[in-house]
Structures are given as structure tokens and as C-alpha cells.
Design a protein around this nucleic acid. Sequence first.
RNA 1: GGCCCCAUCGUCUAGCGGUUCAGGACAUCACUCUUUCAAGGUGAAGACAUGGGUUCGACUCCCAUUGGGGCCGCCA
Length: 516
Amino acid sequence: MNEVRVRIAPSPTGALHLGLVRTALYNWLFARQQGGRFILRIDDTDAQRNMAEVLQPILDGLRWLGIDWDEGPEVDGPNAPYFQSQRVDGHKAAVASLLESGYAYYDYATTDEIAAERQAAVANKEGVFRYSRRWMAETAADRVRFEAEGRKSVVRLKMPTEGTLVIDDQVRGPVEFEWQREQDHVIQRADGTFLYHLASIVDDHAMGITHIIRAEEHLSNTPRQIFILQSLGVELPRFAHLPFVAEPGSRNKLSKRKIREYMKNRDFSELVARGNKIAAALKLETGLDAFSPVVVDFYRQTGFLPEAIVNYLALLGWALDDKTEHFTREDLVKSFSLERVNKSAASFDPGKLMAFQVRHMLALSVEKRVDLCLPFLEKAGLVAAPDKVAAIVSAAGDRIKVAGDIIDYLDFFTDDDKLTRDTTAFAREMGKYGAAGCLAKFRGVIASAAFEPAALEKCLQDFVAAEGIKVGQIIHVLRLAVTGKTVGFGLYETMAILGRESVLARIDYALREADK
RNA sequence: GGCCCCAUCGUCUAGCGGUUCAGGACAUCACUCUUUCAAGGUGAAGACAUGGGUUCGACUCCCAUUGGGGCCGCCA
């Protein structure tokens, strides 16, 4: 049994799309499990401008997710080059061989003539259009004659006209195609360049790919590729066609061009809002095209965990059993199988992705989470003491869902007299009878208190009892005074982290503000 | 239009003829806990697209219908 060799062959587009990631992941998992090789080939066209610019996001994104390739750009390998545009010699040789053996022919029809035939076919309701081969050059003499007319040639496949092809798809089982419905596809243009379907399958073969695991959209294109391979007299790889990653709440293929539409989805727009909030604190550019949950960079910029995304994506179209949901990368490598890949498209569910993120985040130690958060504080322009950050992260618990959420706690680091307040809420609480006096009095009590949560709680309980008021009558105004917000984690912990000096200063500041 | 693929709760899925008036997860709702927001606890609601077969017996097999998706380029 030969070594398993799989590949992804993206065209460089400037962004790593979720659908491509899922295909990459399944290929990678399969390779790792089988002890095979995972290859990255870039199916660029020769007319690609700014190669580095459009390629780098894909490379970086895959690496960030831990989807590493054994052969490909930046790592090289025995089957170099890994850019399709540099492999034209192979394409040329393949076409020459096909021509030689009669499985392809020079065709001298003009595009207008083909269009006319196609139109006629539609008009006659023939269903399929099949080229008449009227301008097919069967002999050298034909070529001379056509060329004398000033015609230019393309190379077409001479497809079979009868019989049935059965593809034993590893995900879908046997799929039948009738050869007579296939067309004489062009494989080489008049300008001598080669078409994707020729180049791709020739490269796959040259690289020794054993399993072509790709998106379902290629299923209909498989017959012509198999024909090429068969005509070349080489061994066929196995095929596995993966279902699409679909839009939130529909079965349409997920597209990075329809973000505006996805914004109607609540979970999707909440995710975007969360991302934008973090990006704003970090002063990042956030055009919806480049910065949205459809693109991997979004997750990296906002502090998601690669493990969480990998776990979620693995389950989007595959399941081990009826209950296992939390997978480490190693678990996935161990359990993955093409046989258990689903056949139907699976919608991307941002809410569920977030649930996986939280689960993976909480599985990390406080120290780990602090390490993840620190760079975000730094990017927000803060040099924070790790101890303090650790206390915040620990107290915040699952409120910090992604590392970037640490920016919700920037208030812990701002100057006491520059605290921004929820003024509406503050006015409301301060407006309540006796609130200001109560706050001032409590300030006196804690001025000498021990600043740790338990002691502070006792302090407040005693104060409340002595004053004959309820906890609710002071704690809200106190929170607003100290943090400026109505929400947050435990107030005693909050005060302990802030420390006596800060808390007293903030209360003083609040009282001054209230006086105005 | 032709061909190909797909079809279980809102979503991701388990189910490979009987042990299932269909199990889990996310989301939702209610209650509970509570200094706020989360979290937690308890519970609820929620699906086999339809119609025919096959079978003693179909979510599971077959066919049709319907619906959804994809491919039909001198694009990748």
C-alpha cells in the first residue's frame, strides 16, 4: 500500500475563507491519521499580480490554525515547484501525449461558431450541448487547411460518446455519469495556456496524490479529469467530495461576498459586533470584507483559540458518535474518518462556534489565559502588570470568551479621575434618596478595611446592618462609583483588585461629580 | 433547460429494519441561585419533507414528487 498523499490547491485570493479551512482541515486530519503527507499547492494563474500579498494571508491563517503542510510554499519538497504557474512543462507534455494518442484534438472553431452551436442546442431543447467537431483537425493536412483560413486552434478533449462512468466516491458512494452528456472540454487555449481542469489533475498526478478530497462543487467536473488520467494511462486517485459549508440558517454555499446578508443573523452580527469592539480598542482596520467571521483572520485578530475553531469546523460535517463534542487536535487525528463525513451541506453557526470557544478557553489555566490577553492590552496601549491581569482574568471567568475581551476591563487600568461612567445609570442611582450620603459614609468605613474580598464583604454587610438598609441600596451606586458601569464581576473582588487607594480615589471622584 | 448531489428538532448531529411515541450539543423559554452581568442548577418546548412501494415490521431499503444545492466557460 502506497503512502497516503493528499493536497489542497487553493487559488491565492487574499483571504483564508472558512470553507477552504474546513477542506484543508479534513485533508490534514486524514493525512495525519494515515501517516501520510499533506501537500499545499497554489493553483495560481500566470497572470497573478501581487502574489505575496494574496498568498500570505492563506499561509499565515493555516499555520495559525496548526494546519501545517509537509510540502508546499515556504517548506518546499521533492515535488517542487508548488505553484501551478510554474508547472507548465508538465501540462504541455500531458497535452502532447493526449494529442498523440488521439484522446485530444486540435479544434479550429471560433468562439462565435461554438456559441452558435450552443444556442442551436438550447433552441432545439436538446438538453446537453455537444460540439459537432466540425472544425476538428484530424490530420496534419486539416491543420494546414484551417490555418490557411486564418483560424486559430485550441485543444479539446475527445470525450467518449457512450458508456457510463462510476466514481466510487469515498463520501458519497458510487456516483454515475453518462459519457454522452460530457462535452469536449477545452484543455489548452488558443494562446497556448492551459485550463485549470487539465493543469490541476496533471499536477495531482505528478505529485503522487492518492486521495483527492475537495468540495462538492468539483463532483460534476470529475469525469473529464478521470478521462484525462485514463487517457494518459495512469492510475486513478480516490475521490472524496465534501459537502459545502453553508450560510448561517440556509443551505447556500457560504460566500465572503454576502456578509451584509448574514448580518441579519443575530449570532453572526453579535460576533461581528464583538470583533469590532475589540478592533476599535486596538485601532485595527475593520472593513467587512476583510474582517468578518467568514475569514480566518477575524478570529486571530480578536483572540479566538485555534483549537476551538478546529474543533468546531471538524464537527461541521463530521461526527464521531452521538455525544463526543470536545476534541483536542490529537483526538481528532485519532478519530477522524472519511466514512463518517456527512453528505449534506452544514450551515455555519456562529453561536455554536462561540460555545466551543468558551469551552476551550475555560479549559485553559488562568496563566495561559493571561498570556493570551497580555498582547491585547499591549496593543491597546497598556503595559499591565501580569499579577493584576491574572486577578482580573480569574475573577472574570467565562466573561472573557476570547482573549480580546480583556479590553472590557481597561477601566481597571485607567486613572482614577479619568474613569468614564455610564452617566445615565450613575445619575439614576445617585438620585435615589440618601445615596450620596450613604456612599460617603461607607467610604469612611473602608478607608481602614483590609482589601480582600471576604473582608470587604463583611465590611459591607456590617455597614448595611448598622444603617438599617438593604444591600441593594448601596451596592449599585458603589459599583458605578468604582467601575463606572452597571455590570461586571463580583464587586468585592473588583475592589480588592483595584486596591484601597484606587477605590477611595474613585469614590471621591464620584462624589465630586455628583455634587455638580 | 440537461446532468449530478442532498433531505432527522431553528442549527450541528446520533440513528446503518425491530432494544427509539427518535438520543446528544448549541440556541430558545420558564423556574431557581444572586450585589449587577454572566455562569451554575432544575425543567420545558422542539424533527424523521410528501406520496407510494418492499417487509411480519420502516427514520433506516426502493421509486416518484417536492424542496434545497452544485456543475454545465478558450474562469479557478
